[in-house]
Design a protein around this nucleic acid. Sequence first.
RNA 1: CAAGUAAGCUGGACAGCCGCGUGGGCAGUGCCGAAAGGCCGUCCAUGAGGAAAGUCCGGGCUCCGUAGGGCAAGGAUAACGGAUAACAUCCGCCGGGGGCGACCCUAGGAAAAGUGCAACAGAGAGAUACCGCCUUGUGGGCCUUGCGCCGACGAGGUAAGGGUGGAAAGGCGAGGUAAGAGCUCACCCGAUGGCUGGAGACUGCCCAUCGCUGUAAACUCUAUCCGGAGCAACACCGUGGAGGGACAUAUGGCUGGCCCGGCCGUCCCGUGGAGGUGGCUGGAACGCGCUGGCAACGGCGCGUCUAGAUAGAUGGCUGUCUUAAAGGACAGAACCCGGCUUACAGGCUUGCUUGCAAU
RNA 2: CCGGGUGUGGCGAAGCUUGGUAUCGCGCUUGGUUCGGGUCCAAGAGGCCGUGGGUUCAAAUCCCGCCACUCGGA
Length: 115
Amino acid sequence: MKFTVTMKRNHEFQRLYHKGKSAASPYLALYCRKSRRGQNRLGFTVGKKVGCAVKRNRVRRRLREIYRLHEHELTPGYDIVVVARVKAVYAKYAQLEKSFLSLADKLGLRKKAEG
RNA sequence: CAAGUAAGCUGGACAGCCGCGUGGGCAGUGCCGAAAGGCCGUCCAUGAGGAAAGUCCGGGCUCCGUAGGGCAAGGAUAACGGAUAACAUCCGCCGGGGGCGACCCUAGGAAAAGUGCAACAGAGAGAUACCGCCUUGUGGGCCUUGCGCCGACGAGGUAAGGGUGGAAAGGCGAGGUAAGAGCUCACCCGAUGGCUGGAGACUGCCCAUCGCUGUAAACUCUAUCCGGAGCAACACCGUGGAGGGACAUAUGGCUGGCCCGGCCGUCCCGUGGAGGUGGCUGGAACGCGCUGGCAACGGCGCGUCUAGAUAGAUGGCUGUCUUAAAGGACAGAACCCGGCUUACAGGCUUGCUUGCAAU
RNA sequence: CCGGGUGUGGCGAAGCUUGGUAUCGCGCUUGGUUCGGGUCCAAGAGGCCGUGGGUUCAAAUCCCGCCACUCGGA
């Protein structure tokens, strides 16, 4: 992921939950906030409620893959947090992908489609 | 063939494209840096489990404490013999229980060291006479006048029978007796001691004595074992900050109109928050062969190196094959080992038992 | 990684130490009182004591395994 660093600190997540814009679907919740950097910062939250370690890992890996494949479509300069909900465990990859893209559209993160 | 029982194996394979962690190589006069080095690119190798889980035991390792050891407290374990670094694990075996059987289950020391508890029911729960049975005394009733029968009150004997209970104090039979009673006898059961066999627990067509409620996963007693904490241990580096010392306290800067006042420097020592590095994987290791042992397990030889992350690397798409199905069994290393417990779609192998059929 | 606590009618709690009858408050149902409702009075229903085993004559209670929730420390 060329234009992205990961977010690790708890207080960074807390700031986004309180001050960022948000959008939600049955599978995911998305928080974002504009920053002054030239690159995006990305964080994932997969709570214990989702399931055991294997299930949490599977969801997180799928979400990271979705982000990686669509990174070039997003406008840089945002902090983004993706929160997985309980239903995400039972969702297929395509459903998660569709859900993520529609949420990104809602928050205006995607570049205008060119051509 | 069906039903069952025990043990073990497996937990998809291969290929392509994009992407990730670790280790190594190469290259660009690429980028950052004073340098060491780091980043980017590319190639190669490698990359979760049988339970990695729960964190229930045992050990290694590290630190703390301790001259060395003992006692107490607290905790754990509990037939016997062995295996092991050790264990509450494993193997063998004994006793008890279940099953037609293969086989399975078993916290299995001491109740005669002492204390406690045993509700309700029942006459009575180491203690007993409620009903009953028997003997006898007193005073009645009846008529068939007898060594008669009936019931009442009292004194005593009895543990056979009744009912209660989880349990009534060895069981059954015979003798015996007023009625009864291990009171006596035969058989059986149990306990203790001796003898026999066994390494031992234990055992027996043996002998003697005795007949004792249950509960210790109630307190307790006996024997054995245990110092405490845990890789967020621990060691090192450590912008800043707080502390101490040395130099300088002249000039300068900031606050300020000016004076007074306050703050600001460099080096060393030491503490050590955030963060970083080590600890970090070669080990009671794995595979094969030979060998000792009934087995657990041990010995010898040869070969192999096989995750090491730090918000945490295995994902996405596609094809082929095996398959009834792989799309969705259970499930993700976090210092490392030995066990235990729990979860698990299915598939496969072997031994044994019972039943049916055929030979 | 280490250590502790809780689970009992619909809700909140006692009972567990020292085993034998599951109790209390609110709520619920029915009846009465009232013109009607509340209050009050009387009666009643409702609990595999989280789950699976074991010890015991007998387990909510004692012991072991598991599940869920929760607290503390490094």
